[in-house]
């Protein structure tokens, strides 16, 4: 369960989040959308205690992210960019992860799903961008936790892996998990998201289901709806 209360964050003079309130309490897949710089990643990072809010707070399973670190045992976070210590082997990275947060429940299953077994003894710096993202995914998804925060999970992945990941996320929803993801891929949102939070101008501009978003902008799909939403806003700014 995530409760966002009166959350504000600015980087110097640029307001990124402005008095945001939201609650996510049911299992499902929640997509956080918005143009570049709209605060999606900042919101995720605040949830993980990586960025400190200026005002307000986020409560995850009733624990304040400002005050506690224990809630992180119930959350798995996927950073947007797959970066790890360059000179560690893949198996050492996974060992480090397990030392930091305990034994993973499904490491082997994910290694097989993402075809990572041949890379176990390779140094991270020698992997391709796509394989680095797969390692990133394994370190996040190998924990069977109630909440996943995924920042651009499909970035740099090949189509086959994208499909496998999509199925995996849907399977997690069926198991009663909560998945919050940010993405710039509209068809992924259309295929799996239960609810959308659209961030714009530091606020939650739209909150509702995929169908509600498409209906509100009389579009044929999510991509068109988002394009119309942004064009409508640009027109408003010009006027």
């Amino acid at each position: 369960m995530i409760e966002i209360k009166n959350l504000s964050k600015a980087y110097k003079k640029r307001k990124v989040l402005h008095h945001i309130d939201a609650t996510i309490s049911n299992p499902g897949i929640y997509a956080v959308l918005g143009p570049n710089g709209s605060g999606k990643t900042t919101l995720m990072k605040i949830c993980m205690g990586l960025v400190l809010p200026d005002e307000g707070d986020v409560y995850i399973y009733r624990e304040s992210v400002r005050a506690s670190i224990q809630y992180r045992r119930m959350v798995s976070y996927l950073p947007q960019i797959a970066r790890f210590p360059d000179n560690l082997k893949v198996k050492e990275l996974l060992q480090l992860t397990e030392h930091l947060r305990g034994k993973a429940q499904r490491k082997e299953m994910l290694m097989e799903l993402l075809d990572l077994d041949p890379y176990m003894d390779q140094l991270f710096r020698n992997l391709s961008g796509g394989t680095q993202q797969k390692v990133n995914l394994v370190t996040c998804l190998m924990y069977d936790v109630p909440l996943y925060l995924l920042d651009e999970p499909t970035a740099a992945l090949d189509p086959v892996t994208q499909i496998r990941l999509k199925e995996f996320i849907q399977h997690e929803r069926e198991r009663g998990k909560m998945v919050v993801l940010t993405t710039h891929v509209p068809h992924l949102v259309q295929a799996i998201a239960d609810e959308i939070f659209f961030l714009l101008y530091g606020d939650i501009y739209f909150h509702g289901s995929v169908e509600q978003l498409i209906g509100a902008y009389q579009a044929n799909d999510v991509e068109e709806a988002i394009a119309r939403l942004l064009m409508y806003e640009q027109e408003k700014v010009k006027i």
Binding site: K45, M48, G49, L50, I69, Q70, R72, R73, Y77, P79, I81, R83, F84, P85, D86, T97, L100, R101, N136, T139
Partner: peptide, 16 residues
């Protein structure tokens, strides 16, 4: 500066 690139990942775990 190398650490800074992946520190977010380390800090997202239950460590102070």
């Amino acid at each position: 500066y190398q650490i800074r690139e992946y520190i977010a990942w380390v800090l997202s775990h239950p460590v102070s």
